[in-house]
Design a protein around this nucleic acid. Structure first.
Lengths: 241, 241
DNA sequence: TGTAAAAGCGTAAATTTAACGTTTTTAATT
DNA sequence: AATTAAAAACGTTAAATTTACGCTTTTACA
């Protein structure tokens, strides 16, 4: 195992969840205090990430980031794009930061996103914070673009892959699922039609269990069956452009 | 302009087209003849690609590859994945090849695909050849995986983005379009229903022009209007999972 | 001149979507 | 203990779309 960093290759991670009817991204506080004169002080937010170690794969590096934050292994991450423009790191702040890490100013980063269930708690919240994706703070590097690209990727897949269910706890209500769609697609959906459509799917399985106390009338819980989904999906695949 | 290579970063390009009712990929012959004993001779196929130069962006590098082959600038390429596993380059052949190029054995490659219209001729066909994607020759590195990933990406987008039209000449017949869908989705489509669906789209514009001689009855030509498409598409975006 | 085959037009049943109204069940309030 | 409000759930109907077909037209070619 070679623990040296590849000094021009990093992995950045977009963690996402839905909370209070909005989509949230996890960001890490970046600060660098230099007590010498004139130098700008770095004080903004970036995506959590790591440089890739000589004997780590890209996916392993992403796993490391995700595990440190969530405490879980084998997460269902998604690589969606690489960023490697020559001038990607060009503000004084970013240059300072990169040099302080002993890395190259031409760094290629491979970006992954991970969708968390809304009831998921972080293992380690030191220096990180959830932000509404519609109201991001000052971000370093090209991380704003990376977040936008992650979101776009999710939106483009939401209708053809069972991605939404990653935002759900194992057992969820139909209204929670509806909210997820509404947040992601940024529309309102008719509740009655939504239910009809969803309950017609064999892979969304109603449970006997109900959830009481959270709303007026107790709501039935459902779960997503990946097994059933994989049997079914092959079919519905005809032109729709 | 710094013309030195970044010795662990390359761009690989998947060029695709439809010909004779099948999907073709462009590959480059890779051979290395060493006249010293025992060393294996490299003799297989790889995707066209380039190392990234110090002052080139990733996209610029891809453009360079595409331009060299097609003679055209400003092509509508698509970045779809990065490959950077530590053991990505591990066969004797691949190691030999990489060393002969003066590059690192841990090379990260960012992959792009470009869809060509079926009537498009290459500018430069030296050492390259089109292969049916269902019948690929011996491939170097992880290029088989890269091709599969490119194809999967296209399939996943074919229903939500106007990708098919890139496979078409500017003016095309409905049957050509149908063939493209059939090849990409690997199904047969009912011609009468297909026509009905397609001709109902305002962005697929019928022309006065007809093409004679290629089939029995002359066929009407259509074109895809990107302008109209961009006006329309925003709507049809409701749950479909 | 006849014929084969791609190109094209048309219809009817089945399914899905869209747009609504109504009822049930609990938590909170009086 | 009765009342009320709101989420949860069930139901109906018209419109639109899809599916599964039958049939006609126009040319190239023998």
């Amino acid at each position: 195992m070679d623990f040296r960093k590849i000094d021009n290759l990093s992995v950045d991670c977009v963690l996402l969840k839905i909370e209070n009817k909005s989509l949230k991204v996890l960001l890490r506080k970046r600060n660098l205090n230099l007590f010498t004169e004139n130098l700008p002080i770095v004080d903004d937010w970036v995506l959590p990430g790591h440089y890739v170690l000589k004997s780590n794969n890209l996916g392993e590096t992403a796993n490391r980031v995700f595990e440190e934050l969530t405490g879980e292994k084998h997460l269902n991450k998604n690589q969606f794009r690489a960023y490697g423009n020559a001038a990607r790191i060009n503000t004084e702040t970013d240059l300072l930061w990169v040099r302080s890490r002993g890395a190259t100013t031409r760094t290629i980063t491979v970006a992954y996103y991970l969708i968390l269930a809304s009831n998921k708690k972080l293992l380690n919240s030191n220096g990180v914070e959830w932000f509404n994706i519609k109201n991001l703070p000052q971000l370093g590097f090209d991380h704003k673009k990376i977040i936008t690209d992650a979101f776009d990727d999710i939106k483009s897949k939401i209708n053809t892959e069972p991605l939404v269910f990653n935002f759900m706890p194992v057992k969820f209500t139909l209204n929670e699922l509806q909210t997820a769609f509404e947040v992601l697609l940024d529309t309102e959906l008719d509740n009655r039609n939504f239910r009809k459509k969803i309950t017609s799917k064999s892979y969304i399985v109603p449970l006997e269990e109900k959830r009481k106390g959270q709303s007026k009338k107790p709501s039935r819980l459902y779960m997503f069956s990946n097994d059933v989904y994989n049997q079914i999906v092959e079919t519905g695949y005809i032109i729709n452009i």
